[in-house]
Write a protein that binds this DNA or RNA. Structure first.
Lengths: 162, 162
DNA sequence: ACAATTTAATTAACGTGTTAACAGTATAAC
DNA sequence: GTTATACTGTTAACACGTTAATTAAATTGT
């Protein structure tokens, strides 16, 4: 991997075609967003087919999984933990309610808020998929190794605080 | 809007005593997909506002940037380099053509193929945005450091080959 | 108490992600 | 040369991402 050579590259607003691409200062940084995308896709491509067999998208599954862990959450908590924006979450929850996998109860202390929880079929769906999911986790760990995973996670967390 | 908070890895559905922490096997791996998402969002949240000022989405911009680097590409090459699926790319190119930023020419050797290139206004748009973009790259590097960026990139590339 | 502000969730509008199916063209098999 | 197969880009249908505006309820300031 090429390291940066000279700190005096000031006029690189010019076309990159006139400059050897590998020595441009921000070559690595420029590749980061897509590298993150590709890495994520490598993982998701393993989960998606197995979720699709049970008619779940990865986002729907994230909500199911969180409700299984915490039993009741309001929309704001779900949005934060699942990293899903409120408008998307509204649609996802409407979908899951229609399928009787999730129910909502209006909070009595703050009537703007709704508390969501899994129904019995929702819990059942979670238990049914969990083994497949764990199998994929094991494959990832076998390929990549737990130390690298933790190293990568640390870097990602630090970058996320930018 | 969403504040950052460490995911508290706590499962209270079973007694942890029967399963020591070292045997909670996939805690880290489980967090990877969202960690990748959060890291990417930290970056994109810097680029999006500045692109929006020029009426570009990040995907549209990726296409513009690639056409600036390679001058002519067909749809398959664009899809691969920009990591955008063909149906999305079709819509993006239609949008950019409507705005006279990109033109297409049917390949004479293979008439299924279309070669895309920037128009003069397209090149102008690229040059206009580039300085802002480079400023963000520098901020990222100042925060994170080039060594960590390259370390992270290496890990991401390796994970992407899973 | 009451108006102004803030907050939780939703709706609207548009662009993209994802899968499946399709039309037109090129290549391979025969 | 005709048929079968594979490939390129597109369309269709649905779900999610993103921003702005909206509704209803809580909180603050006075």
């Amino acid at each position: 991997m090429p390291l940066l050579k000279r700190p005096s590259a000031q006029r690189d607003t010019r076309s990159p075609a006139s400059n050897p691409a590998s020595e441009l200062p921000h070559e690595a940084t420029k590749a980061m967003p897509i590298a993150l995308l590709r890495a994520r896709e490598a993982l998701m491509s393993r989960f998606r087919p197995m979720l699709a067999e049970h008619d779940f998208t990865s986002q729907q599954w994230r909500v199911i999984r969180l409700l299984n862990e915490h039993s009741t959450l309001d929309a704001a908590q779900l949005a934060e933990k699942a990293f899903i924006l409120p408008p998307s979450l509204t649609r996802i929850l409407a979908n899951l309610e229609t399928r009787d996998l999730v129910t909502r109860v209006q909070s009595s202390s703050d009537r703007r808020r709704y508390l969501f929880r899994l129904t019995a079929p929702g819990e059942e769906a979670f238990r049914k998929i969990s083994p497949d999911r764990i199998k994929v986790y094991k494959e990832i760990e076998a390929y990549f190794g737990k130390e690298k995973i933790n190293l990568l996670l640390g870097l990602l967390d630090e970058l996320a605080q930018f």
